[in-house]
Design a binder for these strands. Structure first.
Lengths: 223, 223
DNA sequence: ACCTGAACACCGTTCAAGT
DNA sequence: ACCTGAACACCGTTCAAGT
């Protein structure tokens, strides 16, 4: 034990493990985006040869799947069964889902494309489906309702983070491009809405859409 | 002119243009996915040196943006102002949007991340915003309503095309993974819903969610 | 103006070799 | 079991050279 600690100190790093690789990979993804996350860079960042990674992760695809599970694991589903109405618990869980996505905006493309393969990753889906079933939807409709809610949440956050007006770095040139295109004759609605699009409150927009969706879904329950 | 045609026939190909590059790029994207779409492969496919592409497209990023505009241009917004109720026109336009995305599933990641920079690309947004404004929403709320609808549509289609149960090639192994994870004790809702998830009718699921969302949004108009 | 070939700085991954 | 270095088949892009 003492010797192990000593060797670590000598090497200046902890031992390589799958968990440590995924953690650092997610950090790199958050910092510099998906294109910058290469096996070679990740290895260099961990102070190790590129091929060392392949002892803990079969390939880059598996690395991406691991990151997906890591992010999905951050979702807080503890209060999905709370509240008077079924929509209260769903709202809480979906809000946590959104918070996680906003914390890892570059991970959205991974979550949208990589399959879930571990119990950890399926737990939020189980919680959501169970809450929807408890609300009274039949099993088939419950699946549809789940996809409607998850689709809305993921698509909305995706729209937000990829909106160039949200990024201070390219804001000015985006405004310029739009100012030239949005003539009042050809694009009346867009030129009118420019000021509102600029200072768009995405939190409020998300709440509006989610409330409307849940209200509409709940109405299908009464009939 | 005759000489030009003759030279074409000799070379066995039409002249290289931006439009032809983008068209072939989208075809390759549809066939083999985003990872397989490289500048070098695209050039080889067009029977030309990799560097020839750079006379018509500044870099790969611009190629991706061009593909995005090409796909957005396929959306049919002609009937966005039709129907008795504002939701009728929106439903028609959103349905066309969904059809286009399902026709080019690999383009979704591009549409979600690349900025729109030409009038062509902004036209569907203009049509949507105008219809929402005409329905009676104030300019600020109209932007929120637009994002809610577009977010739902994009997220829902994205969930559908990335669902491993939809892909015949990896269907069996996905079922096997799930069968092992979904014990009735730990994942009661998921194990109950397995048969319904397998033969999930995404068209019906989309309609359910969109109708619910539009109904909920319309309710905010009356108050 | 448009295309090419060589070159540079990167990739993911295999394989043989080390401990 | 875990790590390394060399190698292979790829990338995107720059630059000088051709027409």
């Amino acid at each position: 034990m003492v010797q192990a600690v000593h060797r670590q100190a000598e090497a200046g790093r902890e031992p390589l493990t799958r968990a440590r690789i995924l953690k650092r990979a997610l950090e790199l993804l958050d910092q510099d985006g998906l294109e910058a996350l290469s096996m070679r860079r990740l290895a260099g960042d961990l102070g190790v040869s590129p091929m060392a990674l392949y002892n803990h992760v079969p390939n880059k695809e598996a690395l991406h799947e691991g990151i997906t599970e890591l992010v999905l694991g951050e979702i807080d589903i503890s209060s999905v069964a709370s509240g008077d109405h079924w929509t209260d618990g769903i709202k809480a869980a979906v809000s946590s889902f959104r918070d996680v996505l906003l914390r890892h905006p570059n991970a959205i493309q991974l979550i949208q494309t990589k399959p879930i393969t571990t119990p950890e990753g399926f737990r939020p889906i189980e919680a959501s489906l169970a809450a929807i079933r408890r609300a009274g939807f039949d099993p088939e409709t419950a699946v549809h309702v789940h996809w409607a809610i998850v689709g809305f949440a993921m698509g909305h956050v995706s729209s937000q983070v990829s909106n160039p007006l949200q990024d201070p770095e390219i804001l000015e040139q985006s405004i310029e491009v739009r100012r030239q295109i949005f003539t009042p004759e050809e694009f009346p609605a867009l030129s009118e809405s420019m000021p509102y699009a600029l200072e768009c409150d995405f939190d409020a927009a998300f709440d509006l859409g989610l409330d409307a969706l849940l209200q509409g879904l709940d109405a299908r329950l009464q009939s």
